[in-house]
Design a protein around this nucleic acid. Structure first.
Lengths: 333, 333
DNA sequence: GTGAAAGCGCTAACAG
DNA sequence: CTGTTAGCGCTTTCAC
């Protein structure tokens, strides 16, 4: 790769002029611009970003930190981020931490080392303190999972209300014995959803049973096993609310493996409205998050923060929606 | 962020010494090293990578180019890449092109602009010529989908043989009317798999029917629609071989929606052995690719190429395996 | 409008 | 073993 000097020499101008052309500076004579443009093209010159970035102390690159590439809402969130980023001249890098705290810290070093200008965290193992500390010095926005911190933006849905709505739907169908498969306790959404579940039951005058609240890793097998366990007990739930669609499908298949029918013997509600919810037989009733819009909003918040237009401590909550499909149905009684 | 000079001054040494400490040079007195280390820690100094990279003309970063984050084998391939990369001090960035050729070209500029040292392409819209041209100047390895080119490594499975095996399995079960849902024609694997399908049928003395070979986008709905279309025809296939698990589940559900039973009325085989293949009722028989190992092998090839240890024009084929589940079964006749 | 020159933060030759 | 110094490729004053 040839440096800018080479272009300058070939075009018979100074590096400064080439740089100006490169950056669309208005103070270059049209004829000069043209001449330079032509040599750039002829030489197939590509400016080395490292030089520019070092000089400007900005990379126009941001990172999305996710536990896994298959994190349920990730693909659509990414599209939202990507679209806004592209429109603003930013490049998006995705890094998966596999929920490894050390790996996360290493990746976040990219902020300090100036490899990226900002980070969107979809979910992490970082504590509120760690996060807030980092957000003091760098642009960080949390998207989906979030800790209550002072210095970072957060974009999410109202998980408490979403769970409340899901359980209310089940209650309206006549269910009284409703179990919940929640996400990992480390996730902030997990507590919020449990709270929504409790509030719904309590406002219907139903006692919450501790044995019907279980933790999971959002995976299929987990739901399967829990459904089998619950449904084999003497007194079993007639409905299960899950924190992910994969878990919900697990519950459906677990129930079916026991000869039960869905939704007649047991109704199931999922979360996220991912493609899998349609693959299940019966298809899964689920809570739809505005995944793409979450991504957009997160990137927009990050841009604000990057530009220093801070309106700090902002938590943006986007509306969710319950999508009713055949895994829940009217209960006769 | 304070520069290395600041550390040097505070520690009472030269920048060169600090740099040496940073890079574990053996030629630093132990006591000096210790002193420098301490000031680094005290100052919370983080070296700016941009400076280092500009100087070294290498970033120790590589990019994985994928059409989408949910590309079926992506998550596991990534893990394989990531593990090898980490062990060798490389950072991995994932970029999704959404199958947009312009976006891909823009992302590949990251090579020319020295933002990454090399690229692993999981699948792209690039032609063999474009790819080969790029691979002349940069380190590129194709993983999974690949074009036959001279200058890039390729790591994949033998798609022709895999399809042959899948169809042979169906033939051994007594099926004679076997349809195929192939991937997009742009994908190289698509042609190879079709060839394997044809070879299997021909070697069993069965005529290939053009109307039973259809293209798809690997998605669920596609499989569903095709199954419905085929199975409603007067003479319909008794088995369908799909190029993805999602499509296969679509076929299963499409068949079921018509009141058919799987595998008795129609057997279905998928491809990739993704988690969804287990979620389906019945679970899907599928071709398992060594996804994680493909990722490892790709990263290892990339490292070789980066080190200039070229043994060029290498195509590495890893073994696949057929995983038999309930979506195919012995046919009585 | 254009050029000369300084310097972003770092590493590596070269001296000592 | 350590320090001095010259760039890596670029942008951006400051002159002209």
């Amino acid at each position: 790769m040839r440096p800018i000097q080479f272009v300058a020499k070939t075009a018979g101008v100074s590096v400064a002029t080439v740089s100006r052309v490169l950056n669309n500076s208005p103070l270059v004579k049209e004829s000069t611009r043209k001449k330079v443009m032509e040599t750039i093209k002829a030489l197939e010159y590509e400016p080395n970003s490292l030089g520019r970035e070092l000089r400007r102390a900005e990379t126009r690159r941001i990172m999305v930190l996710t536990p896994s590439l298959v994190f349920p809402i990730m693909a659509d969130v990414y599209k939202g981020i990507q679209d806004v980023a592209q429109k603003n001249g930013y490049q998006v890098l995705v890094c998966a931490s596999e929920d490894d705290h050390d790996k996360e810290e290493e990746l976040l070093q990219m902020l300090k080392k100036k490899i990226v200008d900002g980070v969107i965290i979809v979910a992490s193992t970082l504590s509120a303190e760690e996060l807030d500390q980092l957000a003091k010095d760098y642009s960080i926005v949390q998207c989906s999972e979030y800790e209550q911190v002072q210095h970072a933006y957060s974009v999410s849905v109202d998980n408490e209300q979403a769970a409340f709505d899901a359980v209310s739907h089940l209650l309206s169908l006549g269910h009284r014995r409703i179990a919940m498969v929640k996400g990992g306790n480390a996730k902030s959404s997990s507590a919020a959803r449990e709270q929504g579940y409790r509030r719904a039951l309590e406002s219907a005058g139903i006692e919450v049973r501790q044995e019907w609240i279980r933790e999971s890793d959002y995976e299929y097998q987990n739901g399967y096993d829990l459904a089998v366990e619950w449904l084999q007990a003497a007194e079993h739930p007639t409905a299960i609310f899950c924190s992910s669609d994969a878990t919900a499908i697990g519950c459906v298949n677990g129930a079916i493996s026991l000869g039960k029918s869905v939704p007649d013997d047991v109704a199931v509600v999922g979360f996220d409205d991912t493609v899998e919810s349609l693959m299940s037989r019966p298809p899964i009733t689920t809570i739809r998050q505005p995944k793409y819009d979450l991504g957009r909003a997160a990137m927009e918040a990050l841009l604000q923060s990057l530009r220093g237009e801070a309106g700090k401590n902002k938590t943006i909550l986007l509306p969710h929606e319950i999508v009713i499909r055949e895994s829940t149905a009217k209960r006769s009684r």
